[in-house]
């Protein structure tokens, strides 16, 4: 009798990770509150008009480096995460889309994708999304944070990121009473060069008076989610998330703003939403939150398969693209705001 060689395989979850379409450059052309649209097109017109020359420059540069067919898309983010007014007072999707496309036309370019910040907290794939096709993206990103170890951290203490704060250094020891504080010690940035720039980021807050309080995510964390979507790095159990939705010819926009998907594709022939490189052209007051978002991205453990997939994809381009191995290195910002010109009557 011969021995039978039986092999047994316990592999249950195949490491299947969906790929997402990638362009060369994604340009964020601005970010406004949903309420701003109730006042008409004043703010967005001003913003897009300012962005136009920078967008043109970025487009030129990208085409020069990666060829005339380099894929470049533009997007605009609407902050609707914690709207102040009643749902009925919110502008309708069709109104906002009209304002955005008209303002872009005036500025001389097109906006390919319109995104919702609430759709970064929880991704809605389609209009009228139900719980089944939602992904809790903010929860997912918060779960990927690995706090940097302080010198002496041996695993005894739980990470403080569980409390909703992430810092880029070691905090000053907590002091409850000022009288007790003769030995104050300063906070210290990890890996500082001579002096520290210590940043402590609130990731979420909780309403402590409610037992089952839901996390209220900070704009820093939501911005991190947004930038990661633009880099095509987020997955939910291996699936792509917040895929841009294109409304069909006869398909009207939903009546209510919150019935809109996370990302709506506005132009039919747009380059992919996500890209190897993401540029945000924003007024300077976004600087702090964007810095915080970058620190968050620097503390995430990414799925190796996703990173490899993206790097391979970039290398296989006709004009090979070499990506930096830290995702934050693919993010660029331009903070710009016109100073006012005083007009003499």
């Amino acid at each position: 009798m011969t021995a039978v060689d039986v092999s047994y395989n316990e592999m249950t979850e195949s490491a299947r990770v969906a790929a997402v379409p990638l362009g060369h450059l994604s340009v964020e052309t601005g970010r406004l509150y949903l309420e701003d649209f109730a006042d008409g097109d004043r703010k967005i017109t001003h913003q897009l008009e300012q962005v136009a020359p920078w967008l043109e420059a970025a487009t030129k540069r990208t085409r020069k480096r990666f060829g005339r067919n380099a894929r470049i898309s533009t997007c605009f983010l609407v902050d609707d995460y914690s709207p102040s007014g009643a749902v009925d007072d919110q502008p309708k999707p069709s109104e906002v889309v009209d304002i955005v496309t008209t303002a872009a036309d005036q500025a001389g370019f097109k906006i390919d994708y319109l995104a919702r910040e609430a759709g970064c907290a929880v991704a809605y794939e389609r209009p009228y999304s139900g719980p089944r096709d939602q992904s809790a993206l903010a929860d997912i990103v918060a779960g990927l944070i690995v706090e940097e170890a302080a010198v002496g951290a041996n695993g005894s203490r739980p990470p403080t990121a569980q409390t909703g704060w992430l810092s880029n250094g070691e905090r000053s020891p907590a002091v409850s009473v000022a009288m007790d504080a003769p030995q104050w010690e300063p906070p210290e940035e990890f890996g500082k060069y001579r002096h520290s720039v210590f940043v402590d980021i609130e990731l979420w807050s909780l309403d402590h008076y409610q037992q089952s309080a839901k996390r209220q995510y900070s704009c820093s964390l939501l911005s991190a989610v947004w930038q990661l979507l633009r880099l095509g790095l987020l997955r939910d159990a291996g699936d792509a998330v917040a895929k841009p939705y294109r409304f069909g010819a006869g398909e009207g926009f939903p009546d209510l703003w919150q019935q809109l998907p996370s990302i709506t594709q506005l132009t039919p022939d747009a380059a992919p939403f996500a890209a190897y490189q993401a540029l945000s052209v924003l007024p300077p007051h976004f600087r702090a939150a964007e810095h915080a978002a970058e620190i968050i991205v620097d503390h995430l453990r990414f799925d190796k398969t996703v990173l490899k997939q993206t790097a391979d994809r970039a290398r296989d381009e006709t004009n090979a693209v070499t990506l930096p191995d830290n995702p934050a290195g693919r993010l660029s910002h331009l903070f710009f705001n016109d100073v006012h010109v005083a007009l003499n009557d």
Binding site: A149, A153, N154, G155, R301
Partner: peptide, 8 residues
């Protein structure tokens, strides 16, 4: 789950 350490 991932926990960072830097210890003796």
């Amino acid at each position: 789950q991932v926990t960072g350490v830097d210890c003796r």
